[in-house]
């Protein structure tokens, strides 16, 4: 092997990559928070016996789960200005795809977790005169969350890696900066070695957090 690694160009421009990480993390947090917040009502609608709620929610979930993330991202990137005439910031366009996609996955997790809670628990709450929101908040969700936890942490970790796709719509996150740096320095091997390391260091703490959460739950169960 005659290749000689030379990291000097990468390290002298490391600040560009660090700016990229900030966008990566921001995108990650925004998409996961949105996915959870929208996923819950969506999952409830999907599990509802009312067609008016069930059908649109199902259509939404299936569209986002059965088309490539990359296509969704590009679609929103071009759709916003073309269809609405609204020139949205790149960050909004890039996060739209990730947010909506994640909400569809979270919806399925919520639906499955809520449906796995026995009918008797719903009935016991209702028989005490609980409105549905109280029932959900006090009785059903606390029990369902433990079942859902592995799916959510899994999704969070996946999402962290998926943010790299946002580079195709020119959001200056880590992957985008890496490609720019590659074309400026002609040092792809060095650049992507460092970038892989940065991704690992960024995402691995969340994996550790998921282990900790699951262990804590085993103790309390």
């Amino acid at each position: 092997m005659s290749y000689t690694f030379d990291f000097s160009d990468v390290f002298s421009n490391i600040d560009l990559l660090l700016v990229g990480v900030r966008y990566t993390v921001l995108l990650w947090i925004v998409a996961f928070a949105f996915g959870m917040a929208v996923g819950l009502p969506l999952g409830l609608a999907r599990g509802s016996s009312r067609r008016l709620l069930h059908l649109p929610a199902t259509a939404y979930v299936e569209v986002f789960r059965n088309t490539p993330m990359l296509v969704q991202l590009l679609w929103f990137y071009y759709a916003f200005p073309t269809l609405t005439g609204w020139q949205v910031p790149t960050f909004v366009a890039a996060s739209a795809g990730l947010c909506l996609n994640t909400s569809a996955y979270c919806a399925e997790t919520f639906r499955a977790g809520l449906q796995a809670t026995g009918r008797g628990q719903y009935e016991a709450g209702r028989a005490l005169g609980m409105p549905e929101t109280t029932l959900l908040r006090r009785i059903i969700l606390p029990q369902a969350v433990s079942r859902m936890l592995p799916a959510f942490t899994n999704r969070a970790i996946e999402l962290g890696k998926m943010t790299a796709i946002a580079s195709v719509v020119t959001l200056p996150e880590l992957m985008y900066e890496a490609r720019i740096m590659t074309s400026n320095t002609y040092r792809p091997l060095e650049v992507f070695t460092v970038v892989a390391l940065i991704y690992f260091v960024t995402i691995y703490p969340v994996t550790l957090l998921s282990y900790w959460l699951e262990a804590r739950q085993r103790r309390s169960a």
């Binding site: 008797g120 628990q121 009935e123 016991a124 028989a127 009785i139 606390p142 029990q143």
Partner: peptide, 13 residues
């Protein structure tokens, strides 16, 4: 109108 169930249905948490 309170109710007591065959399947007990206490809140396990």
């Amino acid at each position: 109108v309170g109710m007591v169930f065959q399947s007990l249905n206490l809140f396990p948490h």
